[in-house]
């Protein structure tokens, strides 16, 4: 059963690790399976965000426009969640995401995700954890970058 496969994969996504199998099944049912071919854009920077994606298999690249040229800033693999920020805080997409290979995803629409979070607080806490970790990593990156920048300008 295809739905059951998806449930299994969703269980491996750290964000949804704390969910009961029945809840995972519901999540799989309410979301849409979406396949991207290599090179397809999932979304573009500055679009308004309407959905988040869970990578079921394949690789996606996060791209930011710097001085008019595209720079790949991160690669996302199986079990990663993409695009949840734009959904949670109603800002335009902060980066573009492109399928680097054939990419199988589960697309969770904004409304559905918010409803799920409301219904299952455990999931909200997990999501918070993921975001906090990511913030910590970004902050660390930022300080390293600042230090290097200082070094460069000093030198």
């Amino acid at each position: 059963m295809a739905l059951n496969d998806e449930v299994e994969m969703l269980g491996n996504v750290s964000l949804f690790a704390g969910l009961q199998p029945s809840q995972l099944k519901l999540l799989a049912f309410t979301s849409q399976r979406l396949t991207f071919t290599k090179g397809d854009m999932l979304f573009n920077q500055n679009d308004s965000g309407d959905a988040a994606y869970v990578v079921l298999c394949g690789t996606a690249e996060v791209i930011v426009k710097i001085n008019g040229s595209d720079v790949v800033v991160a690669t996302l693999e199986k079990n990663a969640i993409i695009g949840e920020i734009a959904i949670l805080c109603d800002v335009p997409r902060t980066a573009s995401v492109r399928a680097a290979t054939k990419l199988e995803t589960l697309c969770i629409e904004k409304e559905q995700l918010l409803k799920l979070l409301k219904e299952f607080p455990a999931m909200a806490i997990d999501l918070m954890k993921v975001l906090a970790e990511r913030l910590a990593a970004t902050t660390a990156d930022l300080s390293t970058a600042r230090a290097e920048l200082n070094k460069l300008s000093a030198g």
Binding site: S22, K25, L26, F29, T30, Q112, K115, E119
Partner: peptide, 16 residues
């Protein structure tokens, strides 16, 4: 019915 058994009746998900 199995999918939705944990949800309260008239939950918005039913519209899915």
């Amino acid at each position: 019915i199995g999918l939705f058994q944990d949800l309260p009746p008239d939950h918005e998900f039913f519209n899915q």
